[in-house]
Nucleic acid binder design. Structure first.
Lengths: 206, 206
DNA sequence: ATGCAAAACTAATAGTCATTAGTTTTTAGG
DNA sequence: CCTAAAAACTAATGACTATTAGTTTTGCAT
């Protein structure tokens, strides 16, 4: 069974389930207008039904946001575990993490946009869960950077700043892909890795 | 006369004017809860008055956001003009731009956060103005990168991606400074410039 | 002191939604 | 076909909140 956004897709008909349509429309509109700036009526309209009809498929407006954010945060977390536990050099793990961000960004740009800001509108329990997943991810990311420094591959800069700048770039990529969809994934990976690893200077002063 | 957020400060008393207090509180709460997630009552409470009393100082809730965003966008624009018209090498201009972002981020982290997302809640005329300032800034930024490539100082990557990744990092710095305020401006400038210019690899393959 | 303008307060108003209730239509299996 | 469940619709409800109206308080200039 194929999954997207944590919801099964009805393969036989090649169609998205109603619930999935709601999640896709919700992600699009939350991204465009913000969670609080989006009405259920507008989400319903996007998929051709009336506002209250949504309640045949969802429990609340908040559930839409929560599903989008937690599903994706969980996927980042799961993939991080997989990468962490591999036996590669830390530098290779870092490259795989960059690829991961690009992969998920291309698959789901709207949800990536939400992950930056709209989590503040989650209800307490969900927000706690989300922030925990994110903090753990960031910690794991940083550990990999530290290992790579110890292995002699990365420069010794203030480690929090290094992590912060890398993740900021990667987490903003959704805005890039929205404008320049001509790029294919491989090209993008090569360019992004080079910019992060080598910087932009042509002649390094060694 | 000293200005902050475009509003004069009453130097004699060493106090912020009521309007300035409102802007500062608004920036803080818009950052924390989003524009739509912030009530006028909560802004008023932050400075110790009742919600409707705000209207002795402002025209509308939207005016608060608009002032914050346009004042800061204008400052970026003005400072860009100054840097553009200097006679330095493009690479030096780029370094000055990095310093500019750091300076304004440290001065006004909440407003920087708003500039990323909350502009979608501006009313049409203001939104148009804001987006124009921002697009012009981005274009100018990119021109400087192009010049620097032409001058042989920067690598030839996809130029839009290069600009995009640099600006993403710089525009997210507000989140860094909120957590690690121990860093002083100079240290931060040195580290950020090095990460952008040289990347994170220790041994470059030339 | 005193009076006026600025600034604050309390009490309405009015619009906007999320959500619920109650009903009708659609759909799929027998 | 027929029927029961799923899914849609229309019409409330009830909270919330920006903004306005009208009144009182504050603080400064004379």
């Amino acid at each position: 069974m194929a999954y997207t956004l944590g919801i099964p897709m009805d393969i036989d008909k090649g169609l998205y389930s109603r619930k999935q349509q709601i999640l896709i429309a919700g992600a699009k509109l939350f991204h465009k207008n913000g969670f609080k700036g989006t009405t259920l009526q507008s989400i319903a309209q996007e998929i051709g039904i009336e506002g209250p009809s949504l309640y045949n498929h969802i429990k609340s407006k908040n559930e839409i946001l929560s599903t989008l954010l937690l599903t994706n945060a969980q996927e980042f977390s799961d993939r991080m575990q997989e990468i962490k536990s591999s036996s590669e050099k830390a530098l290779q793990k870092l490259e795989r993490l960059i690829s991961l961000h690009i992969e998920l960004t291309l698959k789901n740009p709207d949800a990536m946009a939400l992950m930056l800001n709209e989590w503040v509108h989650l209800e307490k329990a969900d927000r706690t869960k989300y922030v925990k997943l994110r903090d753990e991810y960031d910690n794991d990311f940083q550990s990999i950077l530290v290992n790579s420094i110890d292995e002699g591959d990365l420069v010794e800069t203030e480690i929090n700043l290094m992590r912060f700048m890398i993740l900021s770039s990667l987490r903003s990529l959704y805005a890039w892909t929205a404008k320049y969809h001509s790029f294919n994934r491989i090209e993008l990976e090569v360019s992004v890795k080079s910019l992060i690893l080598n910087g932009i200077l042509k002649n390094k002063n060694l």
